[in-house]
Design a protein around this nucleic acid. Structure first.
Lengths: 105, 105
DNA sequence: TGTAAATATGTCAACATGGACATATACTGC
DNA sequence: GCAGTATATGTCCATGTTGACATATTTACA
């Protein structure tokens, strides 16, 4: 929602900011989660395609086997940064990464 | 490099792991940096397109104006997570995000 | 079944990133 | 120049994320 629209709604006496913002936030949060899941699945696909074990990939990107396992398990302690680094290190091409985004739509 | 290839090179007596790994790491690191820069520029574009001030966008995503400024300035304390959240919150469509990736190639 | 490799799970201390705040600087219309 | 708004920069400390490690579980295959 544009700031101007928000101001208009508020001027009109609308209780904006609670239910509506909540829904939008959920939507945005959902998009991020979907994106992460899609990228995670791309990591596993790419790693297997490159015939790398989790330990191999971990060495490549100077991480640890347990971290890779956590990435692929969707562990909440894993950042988007790490997921993308794993994707790149596993040999994924730019078009593979884009494909992961496409799956989000 | 596949683990098998690495093992073969090592078996052949190659000093793998230093210069080569260093170069590959740089390459991967460079890809990540390029990706971030591309997404950052997409954030600013998307924010302006939506006619949001940094303060507006910050409120939308429950962040702060200074964080948004740091995102757009490419501050090192900004994660990929935050960049993508800003991108989504600023109203970028999935195809805009993909386009940012494309620019990386 | 046994055994080795691969993967999963839990923990933790070190480091990265976060929002918030203060404040400086830049921009815009007057 | 001035006021109002937008953006930039620096700091703080709470929380998030990390690699490393130990260990458990699963898988592959003789």
């Amino acid at each position: 929602m544009k700031a101007t629209k928000l101001e208009r709604l508020q001027a009109d006496g609308w209780k904006v900011g609670n239910a509506e913002d909540f829904l939008e936030l959920n939507d945005e949060e959902a998009r991020l989660v979907a994106l992460k899941l899609s990228l995670i699945s791309a990591v596993k696909k790419s790693r297997l395609k490159s015939r790398l074990s989790q330990t191999d990939l971990a060495q490549r990107m100077k991480s640890s086997q347990s971290r890779i396992a956590k990435i692929e398990a969707g562990d909440p302690s894993v950042s988007l940064d790490l997921i993308v680094r794993a994707l790149i290190a596993s040999g994924a091409k730019t078009r593979d990464i884009q494909a992961a985004f496409t799956a989000t739509e």
